[in-house]
Amino acid sequence: MTPAMPSDKDATHGVLFGLGAYLMWGCFPLFFALFEGTPAWEILIHRVLWSCVFLAGLIVLLRRWQPVIGALRRPQRLGRVLACALLIGLNWGIYIYAVETRHVLQASLGYFLTPLVNVALGMLVLKERMSRWQALAVGLAAIAIAVQLILLGQLPWITLVLALSFGTYGLLRKQVPLDGLSGLFVETLLLLPLALLALGWLSAEGASHFLQGDPRTTLLLIASGVFTALPLMAFAGAARRLRLATLGFLMYLNPTMQFFIALLVFHEPLSPIQLATFVLIWIGLAVYSCSAWQGRPQSRGA
């Protein structure tokens, strides 16, 4: 049976949800820049803790405990979920570090690179066939990274860790039979014991910024959980209403916003070599996007 296409109203709502999700993600550098003097790993601890609390409240409100309980009753199947949790935790931590150290351009490049990493992982891990246009796009991305390594003499590790961690997270997440809300809650729940242990150690050492310093910082740490969950909820609403091709185009809004925030707000330097790197990856994304768009089903809807 052919799946029903979304109505014009559903498609419009889907685009609005998608824009909301990617606009919120695009503004994350401005939010995490507010944590002046708080170490990235302490922010990560609270992001896990308060995300878990907020998501638990949402699951109670929406009465969505059944998939969560079903997943927790099968601990032998939680291996992939734990791997997803560790990968998303790594991604969150490195991203916060990138904002704190004013390497938002590298973070932006990492998220521009993610779709091409997904293509490469699909070929290497899932043995998917790569079209010649996809191969060209991935090749341009590889050249871009090589340009930075050879001409700048440094490996853009923040870019690579963000792209590889999020790309691998997406690969594993597709193999987990949980919806977005339930899946993220189980992931944060698995990370919660580590977060509580780390928070306890910080408090015992008198090094915690939570309830022991500026009240503004305490409120920001709690808010980090809410700001983590809100765009994910909007994204889930968009994913239910839009085709993947449409969602993929909206995705570029996030790293584009981060790119301009890095330049215009944080005044990060952009050398000609770094600009050439971005241009190569942008060309690769254009080739990849055109290939994906041409291969889409010719049907009505967004």
Results as ranks from 00 to 15, higher is better:
His13Ser: 05
Val15Leu: 09
Tyr22Val: 02
Met24Ala: 01
Met24Asp: 00
Gly26Pro: 08
Cys27Met: 14
Thr38Met: 10
Ala40Thr: 05
Trp41His: 12
Ser51Trp: 08
Ala56Val: 10
Gly57Lys: 12
Gly57Trp: 13
Val60Gln: 14
Leu61Ile: 04
Gln76Phe: 10
Leu78Asn: 07
Arg80Ile: 04
Val81Phe: 03
Cys84Phe: 01
Leu90Met: 04
Tyr97Trp: 13
Tyr97Ile: 01
Arg102Tyr: 07
Ala107Gln: 14
Leu113Gly: 08
Val117Pro: 15
Met123Asp: 00
Lys127Pro: 02
Ala137Trp: 10
Val147Trp: 06
Ile150Met: 11
Ile158Gln: 07
Leu160Asp: 00
Ala163Cys: 13
Gly167Gln: 06
Thr168Arg: 01
Leu171Gln: 02
Glu187Leu: 04
Ala198Trp: 15
Leu202Thr: 04
Glu205Phe: 05
Glu205Tyr: 05
Ala207Phe: 09
Phe210Arg: 07
Gly213Cys: 05
Pro215Ser: 03
Thr218Leu: 14
Leu219Lys: 10
Ala234Asp: 01
Gly237Leu: 07
Ala238Val: 06
Ala239Leu: 14
Leu244Val: 13
Ala245Cys: 02
Thr246Leu: 03
Tyr252Glu: 11
Phe260Thr: 10
Leu263Asn: 15
Leu264Glu: 13
Leu270Ser: 09
Thr277Asn: 15
Phe278Thr: 05
Trp282Asn: 07
